[in-house]
Structure formats: structure tokens, C-alpha cells
Design a binder for these strands. Structure first.
Lengths: 344, 344
DNA sequence: GTGAAAGCGCTAACAG
DNA sequence: CTGTTAGCGCTTTCAC
């Protein structure tokens, strides 16, 4: 790999001049410039990003850190893709880290990213009061929260209206005539799930339906397995729910599995609303009603906020709230007659 | 962020000594060591990875590059996770790049990764004869191919037995009594899809079934949309297939969507075998028969090959072929009594 | 316009 | 055992 020095030698100039040509900074004689450019091409010169980064002040390292719970969760891979598509246009590279919702891993990767001199970090914080993250903000490294909020600090943030999402899902079910509506939510304290549950409760209250604790099941949102078990429990209740609201994509899968295993028909025997409108939702039979999160767009927006901060570090932090959207499909079809069959 | 210099000053030693303590290289006086360690803790010292990388010879930069077609494709996100879990234990950071099967993006990211001084690159090569990749191998940067092979160069590679996967899928369908079996495969030249199709053809031949070109549909494997359209075409054929083999997860979704839209019942009206056993496959109704690829394990293995090469650069390149596995579920259930409406 | 030189933070000879 | 010194490849004063 060619270096500045070699290019300089070949072009018969100093390395400073070559650097100037590359960065297009101060004026360089047209002829000299051409000679340098020719040498760069001949040697197939590519600047060494590591050296640039070591030398550069913050905000110029062209490296962005991402810490997500799990790239295998498609909701997050959609966010990551949205981010990456924006960084691509800015000539940034992206370091990817999986935290597994484990605060120790989060802390570990935060240290790694600091030590890698990233220009910023995008993440859904595991804790609403993450001290490590707060201290990084203090250090002046731009942080953008996505999917979840940080409570004590003002930070650039992209979330969806989770309360509204939960409210819309359950209101829709109520409209279809349901009264016994169960919810599968997270046993861990994430702002997103808390809010979805609040929306669930508000929809019930507003419609004069009493909240039945037996219909509220909490489990690990990373595991469709627990969701399946919890659904098994729900279905074997004395008076089981006629509808289930699953608050993320993995839990939705567990619900579907349990329902199918019990030989129940959707929506005839039970209605389902999922969260996250992933590609399989509309491909399955019957197609699934979901609350769609604009994950890809959330990623894009988060990356944009990051670049805005790089350009203007003193800008006021911004909180962007995106709209969740109810996508009605047949898994919550109203049972007007005995049977509503799915034909196009 | 504290530096070596500051630690040295605080501990009253030279930076070399501090460096020695960190790297545990040559012997340092016990007392001195303690003093240094205390200073490191007090200052919350973390070595600067960028500086280490600039200084380090190749194989020590603690950075690994990944270029995958699309992280939104869950097959690849599973691979990525397998890789990441192995690198985590080696204190490596991972740079993630999406190529979209676009050779220009691949080339671009290859340059970026070179310029980032990565210790190696793991990727499914877009072309079986990728010159850029070959030249990188020549440079001595370890490359590990995963999911797809490189033809002209000997490289560490992890693939599955794709031909066998295709063969098993189709043999299974034949066993269930099917004779008109369609395949949805890639219109682009990837070794993996080519081989799956070869397996399809061999299974037919060995069972004395003539290959019917009208039942072989080629489309973009990144798009469930085209798969849906191609399935529409298949289903409107004069004598439509009684079974469809979809050669990746996205195409499978397209098939399902089309079949459902046509109001056909699986497996009564048509049988389906998919590729990639993703979480939704067993959650849908009826559960989907698939060829399971051990994607996560492929990622792990690829990362292990990389680390083996870092340890021993002169080792012979190794090609690991993992087993695809037929997972039989109800989407290909034999229609015992009913009419196997398979054009006799 | 152009170049010499300092230095980002670190490791690795080479002395002592 | 420990310190001095020379860079890794680059950008950026500061002179000329």
C-alpha cells in the first residue's frame, strides 16, 4: 500500500503538498497538482484512514459506532441498514456491536468505541439511566439514541410513539368486538415496552373494559420461546382471551406457534396483532395485522441527527418521534358471519 | 482520555515501562508494576486502539472487516452474529459493510477496509472470479469466504453442500409423490444458487422425471416481490406444479404470498419447501418444510478460520463444507387418502 | 506556492 | 529491569 511519502517522491514534491492535493485545502499550483494526481493514480494511492484518525481531532475520524441488542432481531437489522445507507454517502465506516441487553457488554463496547476514536455512537440504551453513556456524552462524543430514550440527559433521539402504537393495536381489537384482550410484553424495563403497555391500558380504560392482570404476561422480548409458553398459559385459562397483542416481532412468533399448536384458527378462534411489520407478516396465512415501525427510516434519521451534530456540535439535542402505523390484515378480521374466508 | 504519557508521569516511570505493563511483555519489577497499574486505574486508562493499529504490523490491528450483501437478509445477519460472537472473545472490533450485490460497492468497501488496516475480511464474494479480492489476497490480507466460493484462488472458505441441499429438498418432494416440481432460483450467477439448482436437476433425473424448463424460474434472490410474480406465473400455467422449491428465504416469502393470494391450501393444493430455516418457518401455519443452513455456525467457523490464519499465516487454506439439513414440516405433508392432484 | 518539522499515541529495538 | 529513541502515516502550523 502506497503512502504519502512514496507519492511525494514519485511526484518530486514534499508530502505536505501531496496532503494538500488530497484535502484540496490551500492552493496548489495547477501543474504540481496534476503531477501529484498522476503519481497517486500510478501508485494506486489510498490514504490510510488509521493515520488520519490518529491525527484528526474528534468529528473527523470517519468512524461511527453502533451498539444494538442483537443483529439477529430483524427490527434492529433494519435500523442498522438505515444507518449504514446514510453513512455510506458520508464515507464513514461503521463498527457493529451486539450487547444482548447485557449492561456489561454495553459497557465493554462503549470502551472499545471510545478507544477506537469513533466520531459518535448510535444505540438503543439498555438502561434509561445509563451512567456510562452519560459520561460519554460529557466527554463530548455525540450519542444518538434510537428506539429507546435516555431519561436524565438531553440527547438526540429517534423513537416511535410507542404508547400510541399500543393504543392503536388494542383499540382496533376492541372495534372488532373483542373484550378479553391479552398482552405479551417485556419483563425488562425498556421505555418502549412500558409505553406500549400504557397504550394497551388506556385503550381498555377508555372503552370501559377492566384490566385483568391475568391477561398481562411479561417475558423476555428476545425469546419467542417464552412467548410461546406464556401463550400456552393464556390459552389454558378458564376464560381465555379472544385476542392477543404481542409487543414485538419475536414474541409474535411465539404466539403464532402456540396458537397453531393448539389447532386454533386465526381469526376465527383468536385474533392476533403483532408489533413490527416484517416481511413474513404479510406472507403468512392469514396475513398478520401489525403495528408497523419504520425501522429503516428510524436508522436513517438517527444517522442524519448524528451528522448534523458533527457539523454543529452546539446544536440543541432533538427528539424525533416517528409514527407507528396500524396495518390491518386478516388476522384480526371481524367475524361478521360464521366464516370469513380469505380471498383476494 | 488518558494517554500512556500521563500514566507514565503519574507513576513516575517512562512510557515504555507502562507499555510493558500493559502488554505484559518483558519483565517489570513487581513494585513498579503495581505503581503503574494503580496509575492506570486512577486515570481510567484505556489504550488507544487507533494508535496501536497504526503502529502494529498486520495481524495485530484487532479489527475485522465484513462485507455482506444485505444485513436485512436474516440469513446474513445470522452469519454476522456468529462471527461477532467469536471476535468478541478475541477483543476484536468488526466493521460492517453492505454490498447489495453491487460490485462497485464491494470494491469501494474493500478499499475502505484496506485503508482501515483490518486484519482480515470475511465475505460472500459477489463474483466467483473477483479480481479485487484476489489482489487483496496477494497483498497478504487474510480473506475468508463464507456462503460462496472463490474459484481461482485457494482461500479459507465456509460453505454448505448446496447441491445436496437442493437434492434433498427435491428428493423429499418426489417421495411425497410429486412429479411436477418447480424451482425458484437466482437469475444472478452465485455458486450457491447454481449448485442448488444442480441438486434439483439431479434429483429429478435420478427419479426419471424429465426437466421441464417452464418450471424453472429465475429471479432476483433479494426480492420476494419477483418471487411472488414468478409464482403467479407458475400457478397460471396450463398444468401448474404441485410443489415449489424456493431456494432462499426471501423467495420463499414471495411464494407463500402468491399461494395464499390464490386461495390455495398448503399442502392440500400445493407443497412448498423453503431454504433457510428462519424463526418464522416453524411459527406459520402450516409449518414450513425447509433446508436449514447453519448460518450462525457458518459465521462462527469463518471467524475461527480467520483467527487460525492470524496465528499461522502460512497454513494451507481450508474449505469447510457444512451440512444443510432437511427439516420436514407440514407444508410438504403427504396427502395419503386425498387426491394427489398431481397430473398423472 | 511549497517545504521542514512537530506530533497524534503507541510499540519495539537498542542501550544501559 | 528500565529508559531513550525512532518511527507507523498523516495533518498542520510556521517559515521561506
Amino acid at each position: 500500500m502506497a503512502t504519502l511519502k512514496e507519492v511525494a517522491k514519485k511526484a518530486g514534491v514534499s508530502i505536505t503538498t501531496v496532503s494538500r492535493v488530497i484535502n484540496g485545502s490551500s492552493k496548489v499550483n495547477g501543474e504540481t497538482r496534476e503531477r501529484v494526481q498522476k503519481a497517486m493514480i500510478q501508485l494506486d494511492y489510498q490514504p490510510n484512514r488509521v493515520a488520519q484518525r490518529l491525527r484528526a481531532s474528534s468529528g473527523q475520524s470517519k468512524l461511527l459506532g453502533l451498539i444494538i441488542p442483537d443483529i439477529q432481531n430483524q427490527f434492529y437489522s433494519n435500523i442498522v441498514r438505515g444507518i449504514e445507507d446514510v453513512t455510506y454517502g458520508h464515507d464513514y465506516a461503521v463498527i457493529l456491536c451486539n450487547s444482548d441487553e447485557n449492561p456489561n457488554k454495553e459497557r465493554f463496547y462503549l470502551e472499545v468505541l471510545k478507544s477506537e476514536s469513533v466520531d459518535g455512537i448510535i444505540l438503543p440504551p439498555i438502561h434509561q439511566f445509563g451512567e456510562e453513556i452519560e459520561s460519554i456524552i460529557e466527554l463530548g462524543i455525540p450519542i444518538v439514541c434510537v428506539d429507546r430514550k435516555l431519561m436524565r440527559k438531553k440527547v438526540d433521539t429517534v423513537v416511535i410513539g410507542n404508547e400510541k402504537g399500543g393504543y392503536d393495536a388494542v383499540s382496533h381489537l376492541i372495534e372488532q368486538g373483542h373484550k378479553k384482550i391479552a398482552i405479551l410484553t417485556s419483563s425488562l424495563q425498556f421505555s418502549s415496552f412500558d409505553e406500549r403497555q400504557k397504550g394497551y391500558e388506556r385503550a381498555l380504560k377508555e372503552n370501559g373494559i377492566e384490566i385483568d392482570k391475568r391477561l398481562i404476561k411479561e417475558g423476555d422480548p428476545r425469546s419467542s420461546e417464552t412467548a410461546r409458553e406464556l401463550t400456552d398459559e393464556l390459552l389454558s385459562l378458564d376464560s381465555p382471551p379472544s385476542a392477543i397483542f404481542a409487543t414485538n416481532n419475536l414474541m409474535t412468533l411465539g404466539v403464532l406457534e402456540s396458537v397453531n399448536k393448539h389447532g386454533m384458527q386465526i381469526p376465527d378462534d383468536i385474533s392476533i396483532v403483532g408489533f413490527d411489520d416484517l416481511p413474513w407478516a404479510k406472507a403468512i396465512s392469514p396475513p398478520l395485522t401489525t403495528i408497523k415501525q419504520p425501522a429503516y427510516e428510524m436508522g436513517q434519521k438517527a444517522a442524519e441527527l448524528f451528522f448534523q451534530r458533527v457539523e454543529n456540535p452546539s446544536r440543541e439535542p432533538e427528539v424525533v418521534i416517528m409514527e407507528p402505523k396500524l396495518i390491518v390484515r386478516e388476522s384480526t378480521a371481524k367475524l361478521v358471519n360464521a366464516q370469513v374466508k380469505d380471498t383476494e
